[in-house]
Amino acid sequence: MSTSPLTPYLTFNGNCRAAMTFYQQCLGGDLQVQTFAGTPAAEHVPAEAQDGVMHAVLSNGSLLLMASDTGTQPVTKGSMVSLSINCHSDEEITRLFNALGAGGHVTMALDDTFWGAKFGMLTDQFGIDWMFNYDKPGAAQ
């Protein structure tokens, strides 16, 4: 059984766009950025954070780096990096979420999202933050 690759997911205090643009200049590749404004997530962030980055992806060959601004909560060193797994099936996301969450704390239960995926977040028993995503077949990417 193969497991999906891990992707680092960085979290910023409002300067995600500047950081990811810098990383693109250093590492090359394609940068895609989506703000909170115009998405269902916009209702959960204050007006001054609407232009903040809800999700950014920098890709260059096998390099994949994802990031976002918090929108509401301040980030401190130690909570700036999560490990993200993009799963290949509903069974895989459920199995990994339950296994890695054992003895830990669920911060966002697995649930369907507006972007057509099943998604959840947790902190494991060792204090490591994890993000799980399963893009459902036929969902708009």
Rank of each mutant, 00 (worst) to 15 (best):
G78M: 01
Q141W: 02
Q73N: 15
L27G: 00
P137W: 08
K136V: 11
C16S: 09
A47W: 01
T35I: 04
A37V: 03
F114K: 07
S84I: 02
W130H: 00
G104Q: 06
R95I: 00
N60L: 01
Q32W: 08
Q141G: 06
L64M: 14
S68R: 10
F22L: 15
N13Q: 09
D112C: 01
N86D: 15
H44G: 14
A37L: 11
C16A: 14
F12S: 05
Q34F: 12
M66R: 07
G28F: 04
V106R: 01
K136S: 06
G116F: 04
P74V: 07
G71C: 11
T72Q: 15
D124F: 00
L64I: 11
C87L: 05
D112K: 13
E92P: 05
A117I: 02
E92M: 05
V75I: 15
G52C: 08
V33G: 03
P40I: 10
D111R: 12
F22P: 05
P8C: 02
Y134S: 02
E48R: 11
M121C: 13
G52M: 08
I93A: 02
G101I: 01
N15C: 12
E91H: 06
A47V: 12
G38H: 04
A109G: 11
K136Q: 15
L63C: 08
A42S: 13
M66V: 15
G14H: 08
M80Q: 15
A117S: 14
T76R: 13
P46Y: 10
S59G: 07
P74T: 12
A102K: 14
T3I: 13
F97H: 03
A99G: 02
I128R: 00
T3E: 15
D111C: 09
F97R: 03
P40G: 10
L83K: 00
T3Y: 13
S89T: 11
F97E: 04
A49T: 09
E92C: 04
S2F: 10
A139T: 13
P137M: 09
R17M: 10
S2E: 15
V106S: 03
G29P: 06
G127Y: 00
P5S: 07
M20Y: 06
E48N: 13
A117L: 06
